[in-house]
């Protein structure tokens, strides 16, 4: 496999997927850009070892989630602050609460709502929205299908409350 030419076609096909995955983990635009670069570089390096035992989309998504989790861990380590990862303050929580109070029928921005989810649930629902099956999601995350089903249901329930 010629990785140099393949990376071009892989990026052309999967950059939207990779950028959505990066956006689901990182709200800050400049950090998102760095994260996307890191993901793309990792995909390029890994292409040589792709044996076709899974779909290329699943292979690429696995690497993307791997890099994103690594990014989250590094961000938390370098900030030196311990914040509950399922309570990310990517938007002002009070504003969100007020917004929900005042406009119960209005829908929150989906991406903001996704960022409010615990990472474990967010991973599953975003992969569902990308069209992955439960089996493929389980493969990427390294968990059982039953766990995927549970997290998907929980994520859906929470999103329905907020949106």
């Amino acid at each position: 496999m010629d990785c140099a030419t393949n990376i071009q076609s892989v990026l052309q096909e999967f950059t939207p997927l990779l950028s959505r995955i990066a956006a689901s983990y990182e709200f800050d635009a400049s950090l998102q850009e760095d994260l996307l670069q890191d993901i793309s570089l990792a995909v390029w390096r890994a292409l040589g070892s792709f044996r076709g035992d899974a779909k290329l989309k699943t292979f690429v998504a696995k690497i993307a989630h791997n890099r994103c989790i690594d990014h989250v861990i590094k961000q938390k380590s370098t900030s030196g602050k311990w914040v509950e990862l399922d309570e990310r303050d990517v938007i002002d929580k009070q504003n969100v609460a007020d917004s929900i109070q005042q406009k119960r029928d209005a829908s929150l921005d989906l991406l903001s709502a996704l960022h409010k989810l615990a990472i474990a649930n967010r991973q599953v629902i975003t992969m569902q929205l990308e069209g992955f099956s439960y089996l493929e999601i389980a493969n990427v995350l390294g968990i059982s299908e039953a766990a995927v089903t549970k997290r998907a249901a929980r994520a859906k329930q929470q999103l329905e409350q907020w949106l």
């Binding site: 950059t15 950028s19 956006a23 635009a29 998102q32 793309s40 991406l111």
Partner: peptide, 29 residues
């Protein structure tokens, strides 16, 4: 419900210049 969310999710895709991305990762590589 999921179909609606899927449409909203796809429409929130950040705009990325793939050529610039490719150039940057080539340099890093």
């Amino acid at each position: 419900q999921l179909s609606q969310w899927q449409k909203a999710f796809q429409s929130s895709t950040p705009q990325i210049d793939t050529e610039v991305l490719l150039q940057n990762i080539r340099k890093h590589h």
